Simulated scan of single mutants.
Amino acid sequence: MESFHRVLEDDCLSRELFESYKTAYERVSEFFHDYNNVRLHGSLGYRPPAEFFRKHMQAGVTTKTVTL
Rank of each mutant, 00 (worst) to 15 (best):
M1E: 07
E2R: 04
F4V: 05
F4P: 07
H5W: 09
R6W: 05
V7K: 02
V7H: 03
V7N: 01
L8F: 08
L8D: 10
L8P: 10
D10Q: 13
D10M: 11
D11V: 10
C12M: 07
C12N: 06
S14T: 05
R15S: 00
E16P: 00
L17A: 10
E19Y: 04
S20H: 00
Y21W: 09
Y21A: 12
K22Y: 08
T23Y: 01
A24I: 01
Y25V: 07
Y25E: 12
V28W: 06
E30W: 13
E30L: 15
E30Q: 15
F32Y: 08
D34V: 03
N36I: 00
N37S: 14
N37C: 15
R39H: 08
H41T: 01
S43P: 06
S43A: 10
L44S: 13
L44V: 14
R47D: 11
P49F: 11
A50Y: 01
F52G: 03
F52E: 03
F52V: 02
F53Q: 15
R54G: 01
H56N: 12
M57L: 13
M57K: 13
A59P: 12
A59D: 12
A59Q: 12
A59G: 12
A59F: 10
A59H: 10
G60C: 09
G60F: 08
V61H: 14
V61G: 14
T62L: 09
T62G: 09
K64I: 14
T67C: 11
T67R: 12
